[in-house]
């Protein structure tokens, strides 16, 4: 379990697919999350879906030679997100301001989630979840930003609700082909 929550550690190959019912539950959770984010219901998202001990990480992706020991990213170096609950809540507070100009007029969002794989872990009620996403943001007349990527989530059930405890986000871009990231992934 501690290993699973280590933000610097990849899932590797998981081979304990959950039963269909759990898979449906987790899938529904992911779809609900995407819908909240589409609607910019960030406060509700952090209050109801995010665990207080969340680790939320999205490193920048370097272009490196295959034999480079550092690899494409490294925890502890620069990142777009490397958040605990405190950092996420600061970001949400900004969205709540009417003068958050990058979102006023409103941005039109679509968070598409696919390639979902749900695996059991050594702990009951803790799931390791792979997914892929397409994030589309469009604003004003024709300003459009598209980000594709993959996620490695750990969801934990407490008091009957699933919450996100860990999320690793890997986008496919090297240079971010956008001026900002006014959303969550």
């Amino acid at each position: 379990m501690p290993d699973l929550l280590n933000i610097a550690r990849p899932f590797g190959d998981l081979d304990r697919p959950v039963d269909v019912e759990t898979e449906r539950e987790v899938t529904r959770w992911l779809h609900l999350e995407a819908r909240l984010l589409d609607a910019e219901r960030y406060q509700e998202w952090i209050d109801t879906m995010i665990a207080p001990d969340i680790r939320y990480w999205m490193p920048d992706m370097d272009t490196r030679r295959r034999d480079d020991p550092r690899g494409t990213f490294r925890h502890g170096e620069s990142a777009y997100f490397d958040d605990s609950w405190h950092e996420l809540s600061v970001r949400v507070r900004r969205y709540n301001e009417p003068s958050a100009w990058a979102d006023n007029p409103a941005t039109r969002h679509a968070h598409l989630i696919s390639n979902i794989e749900v695996h059991a872990t050594d702990d009951d009620g803790v799931y390791a979840v792979f997914s892929a996403f397409t994030n589309v943001r469009n604003r004003n007349e024709a300003d459009q930003d598209i980000v594709h990527g993959r996620r490695e989530d750990v969801l934990r059930r407490s008091d009957g609700r699933l919450k996100l405890v860990r999320r690793r986000i890997f986008i496919v871009q090297n240079i971010l082909l956008s001026k900002n990231l006014n959303t969550f992934f």
Binding site: Y80, F81, W101, D143, K179, L181
Partner: peptide, 26 residues
Amino acid sequence: ELYRKGTMMTFSPGGVFEMDDGENWE
């Protein structure tokens, strides 16, 4: 480490300050 996080939270694409600069310049 706090500087690394601090610049990420403020002056990076998802930072709460840089977020609102780009559209003005564009």
